[in-house]
Write a protein that binds this DNA or RNA. Structure first.
Lengths: 194, 194
DNA sequence: CGTCTATTTGAATGTACTCAAAAGCGGTGG
DNA sequence: CCACCGCTTTTGAGTACATTCAAATAGACG
């Protein structure tokens, strides 16, 4: 598979010349992972920032009690990386694991400055993508503060209907910041209400 | 006051030539606000991204029950803007208000593309700052999921000791996502433990 | 069909919230 | 200097939302 979905995605932000597209093709790595494979493990340095061409991943954190907390669920046309580890090249706090067989286009830390220098439009792209990510993270913080678990679940279901169908329920619970048992009870309640 | 603190801050990320510094000086607005003044109000479009030269601000959201939730507390050398509103030029969900007399260096949406075109290093700067902001926001989401209110308060106190002293306790509570009453009880508990 | 994993259900518990009232604190004016 | 005002913090009782733990049920897959 080639990077067509990435090129199409990029065209929503900036317009690349054919030469720039070729340059990009030569400088990103297309890589396939199997379901269950780790793209990054807590403690390792995050060396790539990945665009998902096909498949699905979770980024999660294991806390001191051994509990898993999902920070982010990513599907096609989303990015995934432990950005703190990537920019500082320090050991990652987070894990990234594939929930399906997954194909990614990966930007490597080792040549990203070179890429940005040759094609400044890509730096613009990454800036804009990161800005959106930050805006989304801030709104998520607010939702976690101002909504009940039930409201957050309904929001999730409405906003990412496709994702809910692709992953087990206990992962949705983890993404929402609640236990799997409580999400089950919420769903039970909602079923009664209809 | 001039933009010296901004220039010094920038030097941690990129190295500007004297000409570029002059260009920057001519293209940012230095603006003073009094304590209590709003930099941005929910519903208005966020037209500037502000670097704090001196003072302190809160960015907050008023939910449907009229409750205030603080997303971000900013002091000297921090940025503040409703980034979602700024990048899309859509009505803001958030308010930004000064907690002290405050001076800011402001980048305007209307000429930011021009600034980035003339001094690409500034686009690099803003990309990096945004990346850090995103990394911090993700870690905050995780803290809210994996720590109790007491642990979050201790983390806040340890990480931002200066900020705690500058703002009323009920705002700290709002930033931590708890009620002012409960934070008071946590502090009572901690006082007993020593 | 059996095994493994995911989901549901229930009882007991805990963390944090609501509401109401009291106490503390800083500034202002008499 | 003290009395009062407004605002912030503290305290307490009752409650709500969500968790823990244990057990039962359901689903997926070989």
């Amino acid at each position: 598979m080639d990077i067509q979905p990435l090129l199409y995605y990029i065209s929503n932000y900036v317009t690349l010349t054919p030469e720039e597209e070729d340059f990009l093709r030569e400088h990103v790595i297309v890589r396939k992972y199997l379901k269950g494979q780790y793209v990054l493990q807590q403690g390792d340095v995050c060396k790539v920032s990945s665009f998902i061409l096909k498949g699905c991943t979770k980024m999660f954190y294991i806390d001191k009690d051994g509990q898993e907390h999902i920070i982010m669920l990513s599907v096609e046309d989303w990015w995934t990386s432990d950005i703190a580890s990537f920019i500082e090249q320090q050991p990652a706090d987070f894990n990234i694991q594939c929930l399906e067989d997954t194909e990614m286009a990966q930007f490597q830390y080792s040549n990203i400055d070179h890429i940005f220098e040759k094609v400044p439009k890509l730096e613009r792209l990454l800036r804009k993508v990161t800005e959106r990510g930050l805006a989304a993270a801030q709104k998520r913080i607010i939702r976690n503060f101002s909504m009940t678990a039930k409201e957050r679940y309904l929001y999730f279901r409405k906003t990412y209907p496709k994702i809910e169908q692709r992953i087990p329920q206990y992962m949705v619970a983890s993404y929402l910041g609640i236990t799997k048992e409580f999400l089950s009870k919420i769903k039970g309640q909602l079923a009664l209400e209809d």
